[in-house]
Design a binder for these strands. Sequence first.
DNA 1: ACCTGAACACCGTTCAAGT
DNA 2: ACCTGAACACCGTTCAAGT
Lengths: 242, 242
Amino acid sequence: MSFVPFAERERPPKRPAIDRDRVVAAALALLGEVGLDGLTMRLLASRLGVKASSLYRHVEHKDELLILIADAIAAMAADVPTDMPWRERVIAQLREYHASLRRIRDAARVLAETPPAGRNRLKKIDALFGAVLASGCSPKAAADACYHLNNLVVSYAADQERAAAWTERAGISEADLAERKRAFTRMLSVDEFPNLAVMAEFAGSNDPDAVFWFGIDLLLDGLEAHVAAARGEPAVESRAPR
Amino acid sequence: MSFVPFAERERPPKRPAIDRDRVVAAALALLGEVGLDGLTMRLLASRLGVKASSLYRHVEHKDELLILIADAIAAMAADVPTDMPWRERVIAQLREYHASLRRIRDAARVLAETPPAGRNRLKKIDALFGAVLASGCSPKAAADACYHLNNLVVSYAADQERAAAWTERAGISEADLAERKRAFTRMLSVDEFPNLAVMAEFAGSNDPDAVFWFGIDLLLDGLEAHVAAARGEPAVESRAPR
DNA sequence: ACCTGAACACCGTTCAAGT
DNA sequence: ACCTGAACACCGTTCAAGT
């Protein structure tokens, strides 16, 4: 046959099928779909069109993957301007944080069960610390208050996520749940649990965010009292002994 | 052979090898030994001299077993007298609670990952609610404050337990850990994380209980401020908008 | 360098079968 | 009634082998 200028199709330079970033992105998406209990190395691999053993070329083990997912979640929270009174600044930051956790399923559980490594997570903590420090408290108090604020955001959301997982596992519908709760508290003998009935009536209102913000307000009010006391102004009341 | 009065050894009336209570007791003990991640139906069964499938005659599934363990843990916290000022009463209760969680490994994680069913757990919540209500706040505020106090106790301890599990899995000694932390924070660039270095210096002091009690104090100071505000007295400061 | 196949050492749970 | 044997349907992880 005579010459025909038929160029070899230049093969794409054999890009790897997957890389670390794609693994993390797919894992984050899969987490949102199936939740933490459904997030499996095997399932994740199949979503990437690959076998599970391949994942270990890009990630040391599942724990490392979870840390990377946690950092990706932290990256979803928007930055907050710093030119505000400290309390508004803290609250704005927490609102962003809280909202970003609600955006994908079981996000808070991943944060709760994973140590705070990763640049994005550290940046958020750094920003929160800065805002709390602006209250005028000592660095030590700011560090501790920061821990508790962060802990409240994460553990509150994680608690709700775990409750959702339990009711789902039990196959209870949302409507059923309320009825069951009422039946349960009615069952409690009044003399064994004198307070619980009235508590159940008030706890867990229709707006779950309200009790979250109530807790944040308690912490921040407490911090203000702490600052005032440290300044030598009359404390709200003397501390109870430990 | 002539007659010999050989009584048949009267067989013990075939008591079941295990019952529900023994399963729970063994599970609690095993939890303390091997931690939550090592608590396996198979291992538990072997401790009871029985096969794993036998456990399902006494317990519906592992989740139910965890609920029962959680209730047994709650039973370990001593009751607290009620004839004290409300704040001391709350603190005494939390101290008992906190101490009982530290008595057995991963106790807090079990509480955190398990819904609060069971008489013992409910009794503790009931008692705490009673103490908080004595502050003079509304039932709604008491219910919410109660949630956050309980949540702080459990999630703080669970956080420490998880951290211990991570460092153990990574095979890091206690001494190594401190060194690594220091090396890690030194690594952080100061302009990317302007606050973190100073924060790391103050966070997580030698006494981990101190930061726990700092958080409790914030919540209780906040509650006092809330009560004062509700009484129409001048609030500590106006609330920041949400 | 990257992915696959096959295996290892586990899980929780079910169920027919034994006593 | 209670326990066992054997299986089912999974896990995370490793590693020699392929390309």
